[in-house]
Simulated scan of single mutants.
Amino acid sequence: MNIYGDSKLVANQVLGEYEVKKEDLIPYHQQALQLLKQLDDIHVAHVPRSANKLADALANLAATLALGAEESMQVPVCNRWVVSLLKYDWRQPIIYFLDHQNYPMILDTR
């Protein structure tokens, strides 16, 4: 299984090349390692955000949805692609990718 991430730091931490120094991130790191032990033939790689615009857009969207009531973030929206907060399932693009080994050109949120 190939696992791609846009954080070089996190990829290298998972690979054991870098140490996790932030105390609040150590439990997440340990959980990730436990999950990876359940999988065979794992390859972890860093992909720069500039090389994966769809993943970057989804990451920005997820960060926006996680903000508190008094916080805000600007998320660029290209073309007419608008996500309905009530009907959008963030897992769907991931499932699509795993099924088809490519990204959907347009996310249908209806």
Rank of each mutant, 00 (worst) to 15 (best):
D6H: 00
A62F: 03
A45K: 08
L9D: 15
H100T: 12
N79P: 03
I3Q: 01
L86I: 04
V44Y: 06
Y18P: 00
A63F: 10
V44N: 08
R91F: 00
Y28R: 08
S84K: 11
P93E: 02
N60P: 01
D89I: 00
A55H: 01
C78K: 13
W81N: 12
S7T: 10
N60C: 05
D56H: 07
L107P: 01
D99Q: 11
F97W: 09
R91N: 14
L107Q: 14
E19D: 14
L86K: 11
A57G: 07
Q30F: 01
Y88V: 11
N79Q: 12
H100Y: 10
E19C: 12
E71R: 08
P27V: 07
L39I: 08
L9S: 13
K8H: 09
D24N: 11
L9F: 02
D41Q: 06
Q92P: 02
K37S: 11
W81E: 15
A11S: 09
V77H: 07
D99S: 04
P27G: 07
T109F: 09
E70V: 07
Y28Q: 09
H46A: 08
N12V: 02
L65G: 10
A59T: 12
A32R: 00
L39F: 05
K37R: 11
L61C: 08
M73T: 12
I94A: 06
A32W: 03
N79V: 04
Q92K: 11
A45W: 04
V47R: 00
K8N: 13
V47S: 00
S50P: 02
Q30H: 12
L85P: 02
D89L: 00
I95S: 08
A57H: 03
N60Q: 12
W81T: 12
P27C: 06
Q92N: 09
P27Y: 02
P48M: 04
P27D: 09
S50E: 14
L39S: 06
T64E: 15
L54N: 07
S72Y: 06
L35P: 01
L9A: 09
P76S: 10
V10M: 01
E17G: 04
I26C: 06
Y88P: 06
Q74A: 13
H46P: 07
Y18F: 15
A45T: 09
H43W: 07
N2H: 13
H100K: 12
I3M: 04
